[in-house]
Each structure stands twice: as structure tokens, then as C-alpha cells.
Nucleic acid binder design. Structure first.
Lengths: 373, 373
DNA sequence: CTGCTTTGGTTCAGCGAACGAACAAACGTC
DNA sequence: GACGTTTGTTCGTTCGCTGAACCAAAGCAG
């Protein structure tokens, strides 16, 4: 197995790209002797390979790079509709993405995952014997240590040991994580949060999900309930939410709620159409998008004040990333964060592809098996 | 120096009280051989001592306990008025607490600290040669790694390397931390958050401070700005705050703001008096306390939703811990946290003694030098 | 072309922290 | 008093890491 020292080498190379042994020695603070042995070992296992040779004064240095084909990971998203399944390599590259039927119970899902993986292995011979694990992104509260879904309203699950079921059915190690957490880890390892040790990822889709990277690690909270900002109250006494409370962020800023408000106002309910209407000056559209953006911006500002992340990414599954909604989010964050910090927060609003969830799920497996995140 | 293994032994004994070697082996997952050597070493250094002998079946076990007199720490609070300075032992026990003059510039403060420590050592011979470090709790943004205060509006400081100044003037290692963080770490090591790896401490005094313990460690954020909930917006468009924004938590729930609101309503401005007035049914008093409690409760609910702490302690420097203010805080938290989580959050509202800040500061030194927190 | 300098990377003996296994210690029990 | 049980120590070994010496591969000066 890989030691912690091995993992830190892989983390650094994944973060900064190919590095020479000497550069790694400088970053890790270990001796040249140890580094030499570590590199030899990792090359021996096929995880690293010698790449570009850099000429300077003295002996040229050899960059070490990740061998993408040394390990593969399957990611399953139960957070999207339909469920999706991807095969990725050690560098986060996507080799294949398929859809599963939005199946009935856990047993049917497990069977379908097993069948899909068998298909994948048949069509991707390079992955044979090198599938290192399966990651599962589940919408709801998850006990990552035991791989069980404690509670999911969307799936109508309660204490489902989905991890061990998948591991048993497939013969590969399976890891379970909350959907937003999987997304955050995926971005941390391979995406827009790469290398950022204090970051927050917020996904705005039908619902709103949030995952925090703290000190380079996923923050799950005391009972796996961290990041549940969808049901943070942003408007006391506001609209009733399905969770039983009132004025939750979810009732104001989720794509579902925005669409519902648009329908109630007699407007086309797509986010893009709504943004166009707002651009044409339609009052109702402006009000809806403004309300949603202000609510989300306020929630983000509170996160920034409380956690002080270096970077925060908002992923939108729908609508323009430069529209009124996004503009109001930015403005509200800037207006509600202490000036000194606001200038330093790196806030990105980007499009969130459907595939990102499954890639995030796969990165959970990569993180546990290789990068120790 | 102490290794990480040494520190984990000390952490466990500090958390659970005296433990036998065999119990420690079970908790730490190390071998009996290693544990035996570790214990011998720590006893040799005088940090641990053999205590109670427990008889059962087989050979009796010997509980190992912390020797309180093996190390002492000085804590300086620049967050209280006047500044305070305490001497504590390895178990967090307070041997002495003195007041410093609320001095002028950094240089004067450093000189006064050095003088106070010289006095302390003279009057406490048992601490001679065993003073392990000095902790400084500073109101404002702090770079804990370098021991500098980046910015403090209260002290009117900017980039003051107070840590190295104190270290140089006294000859002892000095550690600097934000005041609320120091308080949180103090409670984590020796107080009401002892042994709780996911916890939040909120101090309500003239201002409002907040420190998070995440994964057993202090969470400082990307730039030391974590926990700044005082200036989180809880009432968009509310009263103007000295920070330049509007509707900050500070403008509603700090003791200063409550007193100001009471004065404006023509009431006695002490929190205890206000609570009595509310009990007598005085409308204005009820409104003020209700508004303050609701604002703080809402902010707490948002923290709980985002971070999922196992325990959360609110420390009040003033007023009754069972009064209307506290009641409304509890109610608001319960009403604004998702039901499943609310039942599991351990929320305590307690009195915060002035001395706690300096004890927290001392615990920073204990944490760095001994417990590795 | 030949050595010298500079930097990158490897080899090797040694140290220290961890381990398993065997052993010694100190009780209750029959 | 022999025996089982549990606690704690001792001993030899392994393993990861280290510094120091060494080898390798370039540029560069003469």
C-alpha cells in the first residue's frame, strides 16, 4: 500500500503538474535520499513516470508526472436524474460517461451499477485490473466512514449500507459521500478548486448543495450534516419550505423555486428565458432573479464571514453565468462581507455540467485510494 | 522535544482523565511496547505520573495522570479591559490572575508583560524553569504562524509582530492568536468543549466573537479571518455598523448594542436590569432582548447548518444565562435548524468570566507546546 | 578537447521509532 | 499453592528517514 509520504508526492504533482525530484524535496521538506526511494517506488508501481527533461545549469532535471493509465475510478451520481456513471483516470480525465435508469430501490441500483461496470471493463481493456475503486455521490446525509446513507429524502432512503452493497456486488472498494461533498472534492482534486486548501463549492440546481474544503480536507461535520445551507434561513417568516421551516435559502434561490416563482408570475420558467426577460426590463423577472441572487449572496457572505475561504465557486446547472442572477450574487456578497476580506475572496460563478457530479464521485475513490484527501 | 506520539498520549489523558497504559494502547492503536516506552519517557520528563491503582482480575492497572506542576503557561488577554494576565498549569488550573494597565502602544504593553512575568516567577517558585510559553489573545485578525497582529481596530494596530516582541523581551516562546480563537481553544482543552472535535464557541460581550474547532483543531481560515460572525449580515438594510455595512449581528446582539438600544428607549442599560424589566412585562425591554436573541439565534442556526458542530457554547459576559435573551436564542436556533440536526446539537449558554480570555490565551501556549492542537 | 563548476539524483551506513513475541509482575480463584 | 488472567517490560527486528559521500550529466573556460 501507499504510505502517507507516497500520497503527498502524488498530491503535489496533481496540484502543480510535473515536478522534478529536487522540486519535490523542496516542497515536502524531506531528504533527497527519501525522495529518491519514493520516486523509484512510485515509478516501479507504474503510478509515476519520468517525463520532460529540463535543461539549465548543471545536470538536467527530470520531471515526474502522473501516469494517467495506472489507475481508474468509477463514479456514480445518484444526485442527478437520470443517475450517471463515469470512468475516470488518475488525472481526473473522463473516459466514459453513461446514464443509468433512475431505478427503483437500492438493490436494483446496485445491480445496475455492477452491470454497467462489467460493460465498462469489457470496453476499456486498459482499465483491466486497474480499477481502484468506486465512488458514490448520494443526495442526503451520509456516514462516510461506514459507507451508509443515513437519510435521503430524494431517494427515500434511511440507513442504506449502499457502500458495502456495491463493494460486495462488484468486488471493488466502494466509497460513499454526500453529493455536494463529492462535487467539492472533485473540484479540489481536478477542477476549479485545485490546490486550494480553504474553499467552498456551492451547487445551484433543482436544490442547493454546498461542500467545504477545510485545511485541504473535506469537512463533513460532527454527523455528516455540514454544508446544508439549502435549509439555512435567509428570510425569517418567508415562504414555507418542504423541510417544515420557513424562508430557507432553498425556497428562494434553487432553480426549482425560481421556476415556480416564474410560473406563478405567468412567465416562461427557464432560467435563460427569465434572464432575457429581465434584460428586456420585465419587472417580474427582475424581481424574481434579484430576490434569488440576493438570498444566495447573503448566504455566501455569511459563509465567508464564518469560514474565510480563499476561493468560492458557485456552479449553476441552468441559466447564464453572466446574467442578472450571477450579477446580483456578486453584488450582494461584496456588500455583505467585511471590506478587507471581500477584496481577497476569489468568487467564481460557473456552469455546472451534469457530468461533474459523477466525476466528483469518482474523485472520492481517487482521494481515498491515492491522494489521501 | 515531544514527538507526535507523546502529544497524543497527553491529549487523551487531558481529555478523559487518568488512563492506564493498556487503555491508552486501545485508544491510540499502538503496540504495548511503544506505549511502555512512551510512558517511561513522559514520566522521566516529569509530565506524567503514576496515580491510582485499579484492582480487577489479573494484575492491577496503574492510571497515568498529568503532573500539573511539570509545566506552566502565561496567558495575556488584550481583549479585555483592563488587559489581564494569568499563570496556569498543565491541567489548565489558574495559579494567579493579575490586571495590566490598558496601556498605550505595543512597546509599553510588551514591557509591562515582561515585568509582570518576572513578578510571577518570583512569587511562584514552583514555576521556575518550567514556564513553557506565553499565549497572547488579540482582538483582531492575526497571523498565528508568524505571531503578528495583522489588523486590530480595537487596539489600533496594523502588522504588529507582537509575538516576537514578547518572546524577545521575556526569553520565552510566545504564541499569538485571535481572542475568540484563544477562547475556543481554551474551552476545547480545559473547559466546556473538552474532547469535542467539532465545536463552536461564541462570546457575547461588548463585541461578538466566534471560534471554531474543526476536526480537533482551531479553524483559522485562509487568512486568519474565520469566525468573524459579528459582521455577518442578519438584517439586510438594518442599522449602520461601525464596519461600514448595515444590519451586522454586532449592531443587534452585542452587549454594547443592547445597552445602546436600552438607553435610547429610556431604560436602565444593564442586561440584568433589562431582563428584570422584561420579566415585569415592559414592552421595550422585551422587544430589545427579543430582537437581540433572535438575531444571534439566527446566526447560530446558520453556523449549525453550515458546519454541523456537535456542541456550541454561547458565553455571556453580562446578564442572566437563563433570562429572556438566552431563551429567545434557544428558541430561534431550534426553529431555524433542520429538525434532525436540532435534536442532536448540544447548545449551552453560560456565563463568561473575564478571566476566561487570559486562560484561553495560556491554553494556546499549552496547545502548541504540549498537546499539539 | 580537457578539465572545472554546477546542479540533479543515487548509494550507503546509521539512527530512531515502531512492532511482535516472549517474558515478568501482580493480582483473584479454586 | 498452583493456575488463569490481565498488566506492563524487555528484546530483537524491521522499516522509514537521514546526512554524507558519491556518481551523473550538463554548461563553460581555457
Amino acid at each position: 500500500m501507499l504510505t502517507d509520504a507516497h500520497a503527498s508526492v502524488l498530491r503535489l504533482i496533481n496540484q502543480f503538474g510535473p515536478l522534478s525530484r529536487t522540486e519535490l524535496v523542496g516542497q515536502l521538506g524531506i531528504s533527497k535520499a527519501s525522495m529518491s526511494a519514493l520516486a523509484a517506488d512510485l515509478i516501479d508501481r507504474g503510478v509515476l513516470a519520468e517525463g520532460e527533461i529540463v535543461y539549465g545549469a548543471g545536470r538536467p532535471s527530470v520531471r515526474l508526472e502522473l501516469s494517467p493509465n495506472s489507475a481508474f475510478f468509477v463514479g456514480v451520481s445518484l444526485a442527478t436524474s437520470p443517475f450517471t456513471l463515469t470512468l475516470t483516470d488518475l488525472r481526473g480525465g473522463v473516459l466514459s460517461a453513461t446514464e443509468l435508469s433512475h431505478g427503483a430501490g437500492p438493490a436494483a441500483i446496485v445491480a445496475e451499477i455492477a452491470a454497467a461496470i462489467a460493460d465498462l471493463l469489457a470496453s476499456h481493456p486498459q482499465a483491466h485490473g486497474r480499477l481502484a475503486g468506486i465512488g458514490l455521490a448520494v443526495p442526503g446525509v451520509v456516514d462516510a466512514a461506514t459507507g451508509t446513507c443515513v437519510r435521503s429524502t430524494l431517494l427515500d432512503w434511511r440507513d442504506v449500507p449502499i457502500g458495502s452493497c456495491v463493494a460486495e456486488a462488484t468486488g471493488f472498494p466502494a466509497y460513499v459521500e454526500n453529493d455536494a461533498n463529492a462535487l467539492a472534492l472533485g473540484e479540489h482534486l481536478f477542477g476549479s478548486l485545485r490546490g486550494c486548501d480553504h474553499a467552498t463549492m456551492i451547487a445551484v440546481g433543482d436544490g442547493i448543495g454546498c461542500g467545504h474544503i477545510i485545511n485541504g480536507e473535506l469537512h463533513r461535520g460532527a454527523r455528516g450534516g455540514a454544508g446544508e445551507i439549502a435549509h439555512a434561513t435567509v428570510e425569517p417568516g418567508g415562504l414555507p419550505c418542504q423541510c417544515g421551516k420557513r424562508g430557507c435559502l432553498d425556497t428562494l434561490a434553487s432553480v426549482r423555486s425560481i421556476a415556480a416563482a416564474a410560473r406563478a408570475a405567468g412567465l416562461d420558467c427557464g432560467l435563460a428565458a427569465l434572464d432575457s426577460a429581465a434584460n428586456r426590463g420585465e419587472r417580474a423577472a427582475i424581481d424574481i432573479l434579484h430576490g434569488a441572487g440576493a438570498a444566495l449572496g447573503l448566504a455566501i457572505a455569511q459563509i465567508v464571514q464564518s469560514l474565510d475561504p480563499a476561493r468560492l465557486v458557485v456552479g449553476l446547472t441552468d441559466g447564464p453565468v453572466e446574467g442578472l442572477f450571477a450579477r446580483v450574487i456578486r453584488q450582494t456578497v461584496e456588500a455583505n462581507v467585511m471590506p478587507d476580506d471581500a477584496r481577497r475572496l476569489d468568487l467564481t460563478i460557473t456552469r455546472l455540467e451534469n457530468q461533474a457530479w459523477a466525476v466528483g464521485a469518482a474523485s472520492i475513490a481517487a482521494g481515498r485510494g491515492f491522494f489521501r484527501v
